[in-house]
Design a protein around this nucleic acid. Structure first.
Ligand SMILES: [Mn+2]
Ligand SMILES: [Mn+2]
Ligand SMILES: [Mn+2]
Ligand SMILES: [Mn+2]
Lengths: 220, 220
DNA sequence: AATATTTTTTAGTCAAGACTAAAAATTTAT
DNA sequence: ATAAATTTTTAGTCTTGACTAAAAAATATT
């Protein structure tokens, strides 16, 4: 069955919200991310349920069906592969690609996306460290930790971010915190949990707990 | 001003129709190419005129304003650059790319399309030999002739096609008539103007006048 | 010149996807 | 257990871009 841009965006957003909770997703939560009003969301949820892509009972919240999740994953796959393309091949910075990928993710061609995947050498993660589903819709298990959970003097590598707003990414860039950087937490300030981190053996940089929480790492 | 997909498609089609005539474009002609009904076209023409992209007076036909032509050319530029990308980088055949480019042409990012242009090495023509407008909207002058106008025993090179339906392109491929092929018209049959052509010095192939008319060449 | 045919426009509908305002259900606080 | 606050749904509108059927204008034919 064909999917409109609007439907694809709703499914993708319900998917994103489902990643961080086991509970049903609320109408308001969806409205916030889709940048629409709750009333519009109610309308759309009924349509999506009608098509068998979500389970929805009024006042009970929503969750994806198996088929809905399959569609959502294919959108996520396209979004992330295009982001890789934009950074690796077009020379964009990691804070510039999200908006363009929001458009490209709706291009409908199985053949194209699989050729793109091959062209990019089957990347496992996008420029923000987010996992890319393969063509069967399976997400690679990455097992990243948050920098905020790391003990002092442990070495790790920056693998991704838990939030990809342009301002946040630009901040990281300014601090030389980019993918692949070798990090060591030098000191954790117990008062506000801000930390000082050395980056690739050079002079430590101070970052807030809020920032550290959104940096994904793996142990070196 | 923002342009919707529908508006972009109408402008592009009015542009295409304007290429082959100096007359105003009729409602019916637009309806045929947009795959809509004349009544729908009338509606849209009023809206486009309202926005200043076409000159339209009822019963008089339509033509693009300067601004409308600028928009149309930017869509054509995107369409053709994406087609080059699909063939050169993604490995599609020339008969497979049009539908996908119909989608990609609506991606809105000046930065992206200019980076793509550079990535592809500033191609002058797309996989069907059609000229690609540069970022100022200037079309390169190619001066191609139709194979049907060539005299016997003159050598030429196949530079493009005047029609890019998949069936036509597949026919050419089957006959080994691809871009860059060296052609010599061996014989013109005066009865139906069908011709026999040698391709890259090898055994001649017979093609109808209809096919020859749609093959674009330059003198060798 | 009058009539027939074709083209184009108008009038009225429809579906998708948004909105606001008001009503109903649920949750939280007293 | 009520009352208050919050969330969600319903009801009614709007815009975009399609459609059909009918009317009007333009063009072609006799
Ligand atoms: Mn993104
Ligand atoms: Mn990303
Ligand atoms: Mn094309
Ligand atoms: Mn083309």
């Amino acid at each position: 069955m064909a999917t409109s841009f609007a439907e694809e965006n709703y499914l993708k957003i319900i998917y994103r919200l489902s990643e961080s909770t086991l509970e049903d997703i609320s109408t308001n939560a969806v409205a916030e991310l889709t940048q629409t009003k709750a009333a519009s969301v109610t309308d759309m949820l009924r349509k999506l349920a009608e098509k068998g892509w979500v389970n929805y009972q009024k006042y009970q919240g929503v969750r994806l069906t198996e088929e809905g999740e399959k569609i959502a994953l294919s959108i996520v796959r396209k979004h992330r592969l295009w982001e890789v393309f934009l950074v690796e091949k077009m020379g964009f910075n990691w804070d510039e690609v999200h908006e363009i990928a929001e458009q490209l993710e709706h291009i409908e061609s199985e053949a194209l996306i699989n050729k793109l995947d091959e062209f990019l050498d089957f990347p496992k993660t996008d420029p923000h460290g987010d996992p890319i589903p393969n063509k069967e819709g399976i997400l690679p298990e990455l097992g990243y930790m948050h920098l905020s959970d790391l003990k002092e003097n442990k070495a790790c590598v920056l693998m991704g971010v838990a939030k990809d707003s342009a301002v946040f990414l630009q901040l990281l860039t300014r601090l030389h915190l980019s993918l692949g950087a070798k990090l060591i937490v030098k000191e954790i300030n117990p008062f506000d949990r801000s930390i000082s981190v050395s980056i690739n053996e050079s002079g430590p940089v101070f970052i807030s707990h809020e920032v550290a929480k959104n940096i994904l790492i793996k142990m070196a």
